[in-house]
Design a protein around this nucleic acid. Sequence first.
DNA 1: AATGAAGTCCACCGGTTTGGTAGGGTATTG
DNA 2: CAATACCCTACCAAACCGGTGGACTTCATT
Lengths: 136, 136
Amino acid sequence: MLSKKAQYAFRALTHLVEKYDQGPVLISDISKKKKIPLKFLENILLELKKAGVLESKKGKGGGYYLKNHPSKTHMANIIRVVDGPIAMLPCVSLYFYERCKNCNEQYCALHDTMIAVRDATLNILEHRTLQDLTNH
Amino acid sequence: MLSKKAQYAFRALTHLVEKYDQGPVLISDISKKKKIPLKFLENILLELKKAGVLESKKGKGGGYYLKNHPSKTHMANIIRVVDGPIAMLPCVSLYFYERCKNCNEQYCALHDTMIAVRDATLNILEHRTLQDLTNH
DNA sequence: AATGAAGTCCACCGGTTTGGTAGGGTATTG
DNA sequence: CAATACCCTACCAAACCGGTGGACTTCATT
């Protein structure tokens, strides 16, 4: 399940997509419009900035804005930044891989199933972008 | 990500599939063979029994065994019992549905993407069974 | 009926994560 | 230089996770 943080992130990003190319947006503005706790949102946006999804500008007239065109950022990317691995097991994760100490056996029974799940999931999440968040 | 509990569950079930039709298997036997903390395993097996996946027999010569043929129990079922929802959002979960209070909007942007992910995932997990755990 | 092997049940526990709050520091810009 | 707005640290309660302990039932066997 996506954490609340990730859901907040998507809501905030939706707002930023709507305001794309209209200059920086205040945290407090996003917070009010999308009803996200201000200080919590601050952390989320900062994290997204560090991950290269957002840019920010300080001082008067400052705020947050998308670094790239909405169509350039995959949903999978957002989830990874905020919630971590998408795969169901560390040993089948592409970005958070860890050797599976439990499957000492050369062949882990769950392995190929979980790879299949991962691929099916990524096939969707890596083809949908932030732009899709406002298509209606 | 699957919890350790779920991973233990699959390991234990693998053992029970191997011993299918050979009578009840001791918890302690599974614990040793699969290196799963005994008491923790106890909880897991009990949970699986309550969910109708396993049967047990008390007293001497007792133990746990699969209630149905391995090909009759889907992996999705196991995950739901042990870890809960498979879907990434409560509002797109089939078995743990909850109305999404955040998407007051008629149209939640994430909704259809997450439904697609859910369907792709279930398409795999509901077609693989416990029997697949030992195919090698 | 007594024994003892086995599952059942329930409470608890320490650590981590999650969701959230508070308050101040620091950099930028008008 | 002061207002603005980002940045950082610390803290907190509640839930969850992985795991343990101990008492209690049930049942086959003798």
